[in-house]
Write a protein that binds this DNA or RNA. Structure first.
Lengths: 213, 213
DNA sequence: CCCAAAATTAAACAAACGTTTAAATTAAAC
DNA sequence: GTTTAATTTAAACGTTTGTTTAATTTTGGG
């Protein structure tokens, strides 16, 4: 078996595990479930990852590396106005959460019920670094008298809370907004632009320096 | 054993289960964990509730009945202005989420990874009825030209998302806001007022009819 | 006091769990 | 082609799981 096939097999197990963990939860998924759906022998999971928990760690580390670089670059960009940065952040995170909603499910789930403190710490550190960059963007806008005084931490919580809430309560909001929840693609086509518009509009009103006068 | 003691025992098991389900998740909690912490015999849980899953249903039904009445009353109140209603809703839900954060954890958890469709339906129905009342409040404010045109569903998602996110990501935001997370009482004393102020401020800017002119 | 119903118990149940083993197969190196 | 290492397999490991059993204790009404 070639190296690429070996990598593919590992990646395949990760992908299957991601799907099952997101659907049924970490504790609700057995290694047998993963092995069966991935069409690999049960023992291969221990062979590749060591344990079910290590498999989860591998999954998190594999998926989480991507975001930080982009946000850091945006934060220190000197040519964009603070308003532009807010818009770009909204666009980026809306796209990201639709592209990675399974992984996002696992993150929220593990954040609350992580079996090991290591995994919880891992997740907190990943999120902290992202939040600190966004904090910079808002604080910069305030210093330039473009944004008004707001509770920065809770403002971030509102943006991410909205995204997380829509993702995690999909069925509920599908029913409320009368969108067909079985068709993933049209759901995304309808909701993603709406989410972007809403968040930008809300942040524009919320952060506007005029509020301070 | 008197009737009140019998009720207390059932309620005691529910309370212990609530704590454990919130801490470790439904699948992460065994009936033996519950029995041990509640100081009752293992078989008593089947005796009282039938099964672990029925115990969860009993817990949800027991805890969820309270909110709806209050919100309905507020929605149809004729003497309050739409702005007053928003403020009251914010105050109510902030208090509620701090008083019932364990139960809230279980609800988000089960919403995403409910083993049985019945439990998921149960939760969706409970939440739907509440959201429909709040929708009325916002739509009424719009009709009266007090609130501007906003995406009502996503506006609600932002309010509940903020609350849920702060609750579910407690450690993260404690670290970010430099609040001691081990002391529940001072955490609440610090965060609850801040949350109320932030949400009211944000909704005031977001819903203001001036945005439309 | 007695007796039927309710409550409680310890023990056992089969099934599912994560993990390990040791043998078999495949791949790569020389 | 032989040998060594890496991979894959089926089977079994000991626990833990949710639930049930059957015996025992407690309860409350007549």
């Amino acid at each position: 078996m070639s190296l690429t096939e070996k990598v593919d097999k590992r990646a395949h197990i990760l992908a299957v595990a991601e799907q099952l963990f997101a659907d049924k939860g970490f504790d609700g998924t057995s290694v047998r479930d993963i092995a069966q759906l991935a069409n690999v022998n049960l023992a291969m999971i221990s062979y590749y990852f060591g344990s079910k928990e290590k498999l989860l760690e591998a999954l998190i580390e594999d998926r989480a590396g991507y975001t930080l670089g982009i946000i850091e670059e945006l934060a220190k960009n000197q040519t964009l106005t603070p308003w532009d940065k807010i818009d770009k952040l909204v666009d980026f995170y809306v796209e990201r959460i639709f592209n990675n909603f399974r992984f996002h499910c696992i993150m929220s789930q593990q954040y609350n019920h992580a079996r090991s403190p290591e995994i919880k710490e891992l997740i907190i550190n990943i999120k902290m670094r992202n939040l600190e960059q966004i904090k910079k963007v808002i604080a910069d806008g305030q210093k330039k008298k473009i944004f008004c005084k707001v509770d920065i931490e809770l403002t971030m919580a509102s943006v991410f809370g909205t995204l997380t809430h829509i993702t995690n309560s999909k069925s509920l909001y599908c029913r409320l907004m009368k969108v067909d929840e079985t068709d993933d693609l049209t759901y995304r086509k309808k909701i993603a632009p709406r989410l972007k518009t809403h968040l930008k509009q809300m942040m524009r009103a919320h952060l506007d320096f005029k509020n301070e006068e």
